[in-house]
Nucleic acid binder design. Structure first.
Length: 473
RNA sequence: GGCCCCAUCGUCUAGGGGUUAGGACGCCAGACUCUCAUUCUGGAAACCCGGGUUCGAUUCCCGGUGGGGCCGCCA
């Protein structure tokens, strides 16, 4: 058998939601798993929506997720002449015919058929007329068989079979001489030597007329796999309204691309009890047999959990890179090296202190914002509750410790200092730590206090404690 | 309306003619603990319904119900 070749063929609507991207992902995983090729073809025959900007969004999404395609990106619009040539061949070979019914007439016929309770398919008025090309406007229709049935084996859905009497004579070339999608796809997939068509459920019904087209054209019919829908959390189909969100939005929210890939793969696909997958594992373990036939609902909670798993599994160096790039692209913060001059291993310390409590790069920022800025603003409620007269003397002792310490204290030295002061004033750990936490971070929630202390360094600790003291009246 | 597809905890799923129907997220309770989080332990929670086939169906078949898709000179 020839080498596996698949394609992702989006129309550039300017929007790639989870469902679209999962289709791309499954194509990608299948190709990589099979050692085959993964091609990209933009279905840009509709000039209205096919703008460079919309195309750019598709490429950016694919690039962000690392779904690299092979070869050059194809544009369906470039193949128009080829499509028309094949249509003419069908005409010449008697597999297609010229239809002179106007759109208005067809509209009326459909309504009439519907009112009479009949199938709305074309009534075949022009089917046997053999109209020549004499200047009268016409569109081209496939002359599909009326007897028997057409069936195929879908790799996910199983055997699908439809009586040919139910199948329409689909239009393949419009009156204005532009090829219709269903036809263009077949010619392109054949020309690109696509062996497996893996696409959304919505195309399942299209497949029957397309198979008829393959046969009429004398092409080999590729294997087909129709992926079940991805549903919004409320189990309604993903739509621009409701849960549908551009996948690039997750980039903005700080999700790691591998987390998005992992979660999307698990939507409709499973591998035993495994939930967490690296990209490599996905490639090794993916198979169409593992794909569910039923639609799957997007679960934001599980996605977040998995996102956290990926943050925790990411090595610190790499995570730091993700983090600083994220800050640069989407926020006004940055990791200013000069703030950490006191800490040799500051990158590691910074990442280490937030990665266990964040699920996204954005949450990482939330957890360490206190040490990325010169000064913190103390939350009013927290200040009122913890920065009270009772803590004045203990804080003074901490300041004395700072004044007397020669170098930069280690975590252990900081904790020894706090412990000693605690004992001196008969304070419990939390009664000592919470006020200091509030003074240093502005919040009652932060990484462990020893981490906070070393990240800030004694100079910034001193400044913040003094500021807090001043605030106590 | 016609045609087609689908159906295991709330969600993602494993499984499959005989199982205490397994895991994960989430939820609840507890442990750990300087907060939050991580981690650990325990708990509640499912085979859509009805017929058949069978000694025995959640599993196989048929029907129903429910959900969804397609029926464009859109893609």
């Amino acid at each position: 058998m020839s080498q596996v070749c698949v394609r992702f063929a989006p129309s550039p609507s300017g929007f790639l939601h989870v469902g679209n991207v999962r289709t791309a992902l499954f194509n990608y995983l299948f190709a990589r798993n099979q050692g085959g090729r993964f091609l990209l073809r933009i279905e840009d025959t509709d000039e209205e929506t096919s703008t460079p900007e919309n195309e750019r969004v598709i490429l950016e999404t694919l690039n962000w997720l690392g779904l690299e395609w092979d070869g050059n990106m194809a544009r369906q619009s470039r193949h128009r002449e080829r499509h028309l040539a094949e249509a003419n061949r069908l005409l010449a070979e008697g597999h297609a015919y010229r239809c002179r019914c106007t759109p208005e007439e067809l509209e009326l016929k459909r309504h009439a058929a519907e009112a009479a309770g009949r199938n709305r398919k074309y009534d075949g008025t022009c089917r046997e007329k053999n109209y020549p090309d004499d200047g009268t406007p016409f569109c081209v229709r496939l002359k599909s068989p009326r007897e028997g049935e057409t069936s195929f084996h879908d790799l996910i859905k199983g055997d699908i079979s439809v009586r040919n009497a139910e199948v329409d004579d689909i239009i393949i070339v419009r009156t204005n001489k532009s090829p219709v999608y269903n036809f263009a796809v077949v010619v392109d997939d054949h020309d690109m030597e696509i062996t497996h068509v893996i696409r959304g459920d919505g195309h399942l019904t299209n497949t029957i007329p397309q198979i008829l087209l393959y046969r009429a054209l004398g092409y080999t019919v590729p294997e087909c796999a129709h992926l079940p829908l991805v549903l919004a959390p409320d189990r309604k189909p993903l739509a621009k309204r409701r849960g549908a969100k551009a996948v690039l939005e997750y980039k903005r929210e700080g999700y790691l691309p591998d987390a998005v890939v992992n979660y999307m793969a698990r939507l409709g696909w499973g591998y035993g009890d495994q939930e967490y997958f690296t990209r490599q594992e996905l490639i090794e373990k993916f198979s169409l047999e593992g794909v569910q036939a039923a639609p799957a609902a997007f679960d934001p909670k599980k996605f977040d959990w998995l996102a956290g798993e990926h943050i925790r599994a990411c090595d610190n160096e790499k995570l730091f890179r993700y983090f600083s790039e994220y800050l640069l692209e989407f926020t006004s913060y940055s990791v200013n090296e000069s703030l950490f001059a006191h800490l040799p291993d500051w990158r590691n310390s910074l990442i280490e202190s937030v990665k266990e409590r964040a699920r996204t790069l954005s949450e990482m920022l939330d957890k360490c914002r206190f040490c990325l800025v010169e000064e913190v603003e103390i939350e009013e409620k927290a200040g009122k509750r913890f920065l009270t007269e009772a803590i004045r003397e203990p804080i003074r002792d901490v300041l004395n410790f700072i004044a007397s310490s020669a170098g930069e204290p280690t975590e252990q030295e900081w904790m020894d200092c706090l412990t000693a002061i605690m004992e001196k004033y008969q304070l419990k750990m939390k009664d000592m730590v919470q006020p200091i936490r509030v003074a240093l971070t502005g919040s009652t929630v932060s990484p462990p206090i020893d981490r906070v202390l070393i990240l800030l360094g004694k100079e910034r600790v001193r400044q913040r404690l003094e500021a807090a003291m001043a605030g106590i009246r």
